[in-house]
Write a protein that binds this DNA or RNA. Sequence first.
DNA 1: GAGAGGTTACTACGCTGTCAGTAAGTGATG
DNA 2: CATCACTTACTGACAGCGTAGTAACCTCTC
Lengths: 216, 216
Amino acid sequence: MTTRRAPRARPETLVKRTEILRAATATFGAKGYKNGPLTEIADQVGMTHAGILHHFGSKDQLLVEVLKYRDQEDVAPLEGAHIPGGMELFRHLVRTAFTNETRPGIVQAYAVLSAESVTDEHPGRAYFEERYQTLRREITEAFAAVCAERGITAPATVDRAAASILAVMDGLQVQWLLSPDDVQLAEASAFAIEAIVAAVLEPSRTPLDLGLHPTS
Amino acid sequence: MTTRRAPRARPETLVKRTEILRAATATFGAKGYKNGPLTEIADQVGMTHAGILHHFGSKDQLLVEVLKYRDQEDVAPLEGAHIPGGMELFRHLVRTAFTNETRPGIVQAYAVLSAESVTDEHPGRAYFEERYQTLRREITEAFAAVCAERGITAPATVDRAAASILAVMDGLQVQWLLSPDDVQLAEASAFAIEAIVAAVLEPSRTPLDLGLHPTS
DNA sequence: GAGAGGTTACTACGCTGTCAGTAAGTGATG
DNA sequence: CATCACTTACTGACAGCGTAGTAACCTCTC
């Protein structure tokens, strides 16, 4: 319970810390959190594993800081450093998918860690729970804004659509990591997002009878 | 490399083996493969971990058999023990999503293991690679059949759609496991599958301009 | 009585975290 | 401006645990 916050860092030290965070992202991405040893991270930055623990206190804490670090890095390049709303959000998500195709390491880290986080007592669980909640809310609000713009009331499907959009992006990442030649990450993401957005804005022109609506 | 297959099993032993496979599914689901100890599996079936190794030779081999076992269990209840085609396949996928809502343990095992399989040298990797390839092919063929039925030529989007359908199902499982109260696994899956199928069969009535088509 | 289905005992290893010690920096002070 | 007091940034050794796999040995059952 010792709050090892703010150890009055030397300016040079902050550089080293982010170096560690990057190395940890690589190792956790390649091997998972539980199976990614501190020594491997330490090697990458020319240190012993004890040095890592000196900076972050524990491996659990390191993971939390890795996740937080990735968040602020992702938001950084955005205009005004804030996620857009309305239809622009969907465009942003599609752009993100295209960007992701150029950085398999980070994609792998998120894919592995998010799934691993559902295991018992995982230190990253709270982070991913909140993350998904936040993202779903933002997408739901974007739907509401777009619907309002078009003078229609947002249908009840927006909640399902919001979860589905995130889901399809994540799921495609796993398939893409397994078979990069068979799966077009960005284009498939764009296609699916368009399909889902269209289904919300112009619902069920043709009922497909997939068993959803219990007619039988 | 010793083929420890067919050790002339006693009928009672086969029961024990499947008992082990079920226990392993539970443990691997709860903790992941690497972090799921053999001793925990052994405890569940009233055995020592050496007993498990007697049956399966190694932990890696056990995982492979767990995955194979789940496959044949899933196909078993189906008519004719074979996956349907055409529009019936999509109905089957939606039904599966509803079934899955009643068995979080198995869902968790698949979610955790499929993502873990993309890590370095994971023993389950080949299985998941093939599994996704097979499933994508089956869905693509179902699309082709449905299109033929309607007298239209299957559009180029079927490949992306096939991957997207699997992706959305998998991705929703992770979110559902993290927040079961916030995410409706089955209903969201059904909605997304309908949306994607509709987008294939009746493409782009209204262009949404999500940046997919580089018009600028 | 041979082999299947185990157990007990043990080896060997990998991992996190602790601890003591060291070298280099920081800062107040006489 | 030199020195003393203290902090930061580590290293190296090691404790302590959990784990996979092996080997030898029982003990039922065909």
